[in-house]
Design a protein around this nucleic acid. Sequence first.
DNA 1: TATGGTGTACCGAACGTTTGGTACAAAACT
DNA 2: AGTTTTGTACCAAACGTTCGGTACACCATA
Lengths: 181, 181
Amino acid sequence: MSKDEAIAQLISVFRQYGYEGATLARLSKATGLGKASLYHYFPKGKEEMATAVLNHLSVWLEENILALLRGSGKPDERIRAMGKNVNQIYDQGEQACLLAMLSIGESHHLFHTQIQQVLNAWINALAQVLVEAGLETGEARLRAEDAILQIQGALVLARGLNDTTPFQRVLQRLPKDLLKP
Amino acid sequence: MSKDEAIAQLISVFRQYGYEGATLARLSKATGLGKASLYHYFPKGKEEMATAVLNHLSVWLEENILALLRGSGKPDERIRAMGKNVNQIYDQGEQACLLAMLSIGESHHLFHTQIQQVLNAWINALAQVLVEAGLETGEARLRAEDAILQIQGALVLARGLNDTTPFQRVLQRLPKDLLKP
DNA sequence: TATGGTGTACCGAACGTTTGGTACAAAACT
DNA sequence: AGTTTTGTACCAAACGTTCGGTACACCATA
């Protein structure tokens, strides 16, 4: 199990249990690594694991979301491409958002800066697409915020109602909602 | 400190830290009661505290949201009244949602049934208002889900961006969004 | 009116367990 | 041979929980 493979498993624990619920026992079990091995890869312990996981997500976002949004297709197509990858990373709405999970409790102040950056990068990239589609800057920003907001809310509702159809519905209508005149 | 006064303090801990983050030390400090004293009111411990807190919320919702939605005013006015109390309980978007916090991690399976009930009661009451306003049943349900979804998403975004204006915006436009033809 | 009994509210200290973290030698790989 | 990886054994601190006990208001009986 390489470090990168381990990180992928750590993600699923952090985003299911949050920072405080992600105990070393759970992290160890998920990765199949003993505590010694985890501390070999992450000498500063749990906090470094969470940081690594956040960095991994940041890279993923850049490659699988931001790059697409900056692409050369029609705005409508770029947003649809984003939707596909959003649907994938959240496992059709079954999995919680890592950013949301790490912004609660005592982990909030630990990772808030990085979380805010990632969130803003996403919103800004999306707003830029809308500007290119002809919307004015302010309105574009509001609509982009709205899109992320609806995705996050859909994930919360999907967990609370045990039903991912709200999430599917949000993703479905996202392109039209964002680009409507 | 009466039991009801204690519960009010417990709520703020559970909704800030979640179930696993809400340690007995924090709960004790928030209520001003010793750890042992908490067991006087809640013999079954932390799980009973969370249950009590959820029941308290359920009553609050019935009295401060559902009752208003079942009221006799115009649909537009009832929804606005709901918005006022929603804004109040979430402290203008500063405070997280207890239901969302208790539906993560290991607390999910402990409280899922009750959380689902409360959420559905809210959605159904809101949908009923929309039906009375002339919408067909299916569309009413979708829009009601959408409202709760946007509120939850706004709370997540407010925490992540450290900015409650998205939450304010969602509440502002809620009546018009729900009732538009 | 005094006396003894009962229930409620609360707390300090300790319980056994789990937490995040460390030390180190054996093992596995290069 | 030398480096990387890992299992085992630890640790202090914090975890949720329990125990024995105090303080005090209430209420019956004498």
